[in-house]
Each structure stands twice: as structure tokens, then as C-alpha cells.
Measured scan of single mutants.
Amino acid sequence: CHSECLGNCSQPDDPTKCVACRNFYLDGRCVETCPPPYYHFQDWRCVNFSFCQDLHHKCKNSRRQGCHQYVIHNNKCIPECPSGYTMNSSNLLCTPCLGPCPKVCHLLEGEKTIDSVTSAQELRGCTVINGSLIINIRGGNNLAAELEANLGLIEEISGYLKIRRSYALVSLSFFRKLRLIRGETLEIGNYSFYALDNQNLRQLWDWSKHNLTITQGKLFFHYNPKLCLSEIHKMEEVSGTKGRQERNDIALKTNGDQASCENELLKFSYIRTSFDKILLRWEPYWPPDFRDLLGFMLFYKEAPYQNVTEFDGQDACGSNSWTVVDIDPPLRSNDPKSQNHPGWLMRGLKPWTQYAIFVKTLVTFSDERRTYGAKSDIIYVQTDATNPSVPLDPISVSNSSSQIILKWKPPSDPNGNITHYLVFWERQAEDSELFELDYCLKGLKLPSRTWSPPFESEDSQKHNQSEYEDSAGECCSCPKTDSQILKELEESSFRKTFEDYLHNVVFVPRKT
């Protein structure tokens, strides 16, 4: 048989008469490798580009789960590009990614509803959504962080984005990388972005840091009482949809009607710091009717980097990364020049730590249904340095008659930039024990000054392991946590139920 035959053949030295091919099969003959313009397919066939392209389009058009959109890589027609490569849609070739590779997620039936953290986790790592997304989240724990972890990498949506009755959302900033909504599939009414009845939605994105392009379709905003109209108009300008909307697409009466839409800028007039305090004062603000001013709200939190936005980490279910302080308005003076500047002394802060701070007014709604208010920009203030805590785990070892090696770990709280350490030492008198000992005694162990690591005695271990207080009263049991108490109650309830079950099964009433 021919060298490319495997198993047997019907005619000697003829690659077209093989029972099976050793390498690849091409047009009725066995070959060692697939010549151009053919590609290896499933490690035994040679196919042309049209064959591989037909497989790709067949799966793409069917949208069946589990099928493969075949691509070409290293002269092979394979189910998908290997790690580190992405497909070129024009020629199906796998090309190296520039940075992290995109991950295209194809949605069944063309859309997916995100109504819980669990459903959001199914899209973790996706960068391109081939379909439409509907966000409908009523509640949950730590929602802002969970949504950002699972949806934060999405850069492109081919269909539309719909935010509907998501009472738990305060902001859409968890879509931190969303840059493009194509609108290839539109919501009824030709809408590519749809926001309806979101009672706590206050911000779409921080438009000073976020760009969003909507290729096709219109915007729809109705019944978002805490979303200011200025935020919607800003989205029109940034996304390129200005002029597409009709009169009733953006409701003037049901958007922002319960919001404090600040239209003035508060400026800080005085800032002073110490290692654990920050004193702030800002310019006074009074609405047209000074009785509408209820006070100020001061927001602050630790910020290692200057990239904080107002609604980071917030949701309507209680999660809030900001510390909020309510401040009463100052006494009002008739003389504008003698107006008191409101302020606040922030206490209990960490030394040498940068804080993000902003302040906003708290006002009631005027009778004319106009909203007044003022808010400052987010500023960054760093507390002063102070003395560091003591170095940890000092170790001293003498390696000769004239040297001592000293080692330690950095302090747990540096409280500033540590530039150097101060080492103090003092000579001590020799131990009298060394002169009084009889060095001729056998088995004498000389006193040693070398360091030995501390260890816990058996008594201390027994005390720590004991669940009861000892007789001397030195140790006591740790208080039980809520989960331990709940577990004990469940076990007790189970024992009672099981005992009742045994009584009912074992003891049967005697027939009379």
C-alpha cells in the first residue's frame, strides 16, 4: 500500500485506493498535508475557505447554543480562536489581540433580562453583547459592586439597553466600559436606550469621564423622579442622539420631579488639616426662599486615587461607600458681607490618608415646582503625618564578641513616609551569675543571650482551647457569634421535631 494509506488498500502504491488515510483526505486521495488554498479540518480532512465560511455563517444565523462559528488559524479551520487571539470578521482569520481579548457573548432569543446578581454573573467577562440587555433589578445585597464585577467589562451592545423598574439602582456607572450601543435591534418605538419607572436612579454616568455613542435609535425617559433633566440632556449631547427624540420621548413632568437638581456650584473657602482632623468651610448658599434650606450634607471617604465619582458603590438597598454628615444651616444675616460661612470639623480620621470630599445642599421643593440647590466639586484632601507606631517583631542576635545583629519589621501604621529608623542602645553591667558559677561542674549549661522565638506554653494553649472559665478566673470563653447562636437554635429545633416524629412513629394507638 501507499505510504499515506492506513489499515489496508485495494490497489498497491495508489493513494486513492486506501481504506483510511494516515494524515489527511483531499478529493478522494490521501495526502501528507493540505496544500494551499485548503485548510486542515478536524485533523483528517482538507477543506477550502468557502466550506469553513459556510459553517461560520450557519452557526451565526441559527443562534443555536453550542454550535461553533468556525475560524481560520495556522492553516486550520477550527471552532474558535485560541487564547490571546480574536477573529477578523472580513476573512475569519485569528489575529493577536492588542491588550485583553474581546469576548463576544451571543444571547438566546436576542435579549437577556438581568433581574438578579445570579443572572448578571452569566455575563461575567463579556466585552461584546450580541443582542439586547434588559435591566430589571428590584433589590439585593452589595448590588453596585456585584454588577460592576460582572457587567463592568461590557464595551458594546449590538441591540438596545433597557432599564425598567430597577428600584435598587442609583447610577449606571457599573457599566464602566460601555462605549457603544449599535441599535441594530430596537425596542418598540425605535428606541435604543429605554429608561422607565426607576424610582431611585439619580445618575446615568459621570459624563466628564465617560463617552457613549448610540449609532441608531432614540432615547426614552419616563417616570424617573430623581433623575434630573440636565442629566438626560447631557446624554443626548454626548451620545449623538440630540435631535432624534420626539416631543413625548422625554417626559418633562415625570423626570426629576422629586430630585434636588443642583444648578449652582458650592466653593470651599477654608481648608485646614491635622493628622486626624480636617476643618472645612464653604461659601454660604440661600435659595430664593431661605426657609427652603434644610441644611447641608457632607460626604467623605478614603480615596487612594483621584478618580472618585459621587455615586460609586451606591445602591438604593443601603450600600453606600460614603460617610454622610448632616449639618444645620448657619444663622442668616441681613448683611451679605457678614454672612457666616458654614463648615464642619471632621474628626477621627487616619493620618497621612487622602480623602475625597464634597458637600451639597438639602432643600425642600418650592411652590413653583422649581428645584434649587448647590453642590461642590469633589475635592481631595490629605491629612498630615504623625509619629508612626512601633516597629514590629524586633530580633537581636550576637554573632561574635563585638557585634549584635538587630532586625525588625516595619510598623503596622507608618502614618507617613518613613525615611529612617533611630536605634538606641545602652551598655549593661555583666551578670554576677557568670562569676559565681563553678565551671568545672559536669552538665553545666552556660547562660545564653542568643534570641529564641517566643512560644506559647501548654497552660496558655489549654486556656485558649477551654470553653469555660478556669477556677483562677484568668480566662473566659469568647462570646458566641450570631451565626453560632442561630445554628444552635436550628439544631435544637431539629432535635425537638425529630423526637416528636419518633414518638408518633414508635407509639401507635392500640386498636379498641
Rank of each mutant, 00 (worst) to 15 (best):
I114R: 00
S116A: 04
L123A: 04
N130W: 02
I135P: 00
R138T: 05
G140K: 04
G140E: 05
G140M: 03
A145T: 08
E146K: 15
L147N: 02
N150K: 14
I154E: 00
E156I: 11
L161I: 14
S166G: 12
V170L: 10
G183I: 00
T185K: 14
T185W: 10
L186H: 15
I188Y: 13
G189K: 03
Y191P: 08
S192F: 00
F193A: 02
Y194G: 12
A195F: 13
N198V: 03
N200V: 08
L201P: 00
L204K: 01
W207P: 03
N211W: 13
T213V: 14
Q216L: 09
G217P: 01
F221K: 01
Y223R: 10
K226M: 10
L227C: 08
L227P: 00
C228E: 02
L229G: 03
I232S: 02
T241W: 10
R244L: 13
L252K: 10
L252Q: 11
L252D: 05
N255L: 06
D257Y: 08
E262C: 07
L265P: 14
S269W: 03
S269K: 07
I271Q: 14
R272W: 14
R272V: 12
T273L: 04
T273V: 15
I278N: 00
W282G: 00
F290D: 15
R291V: 11
D292V: 04
L298C: 02
K301T: 07
A303I: 14
A316T: 15
S319F: 12
N320M: 07
T323Y: 03
V324I: 04
K337G: 08
N340F: 11
G343S: 07
R347F: 10
G348W: 03
P351L: 02
A356L: 01
F358L: 03
K360S: 05
F365A: 04
G373V: 03
A374H: 06
I378N: 01
I379S: 07
Y380G: 01
T383K: 00
A385K: 11
S396Y: 03
V397P: 14
S400M: 07
S401I: 10
S401Q: 07
Q403T: 04
I405H: 06
L406M: 15
K409W: 13
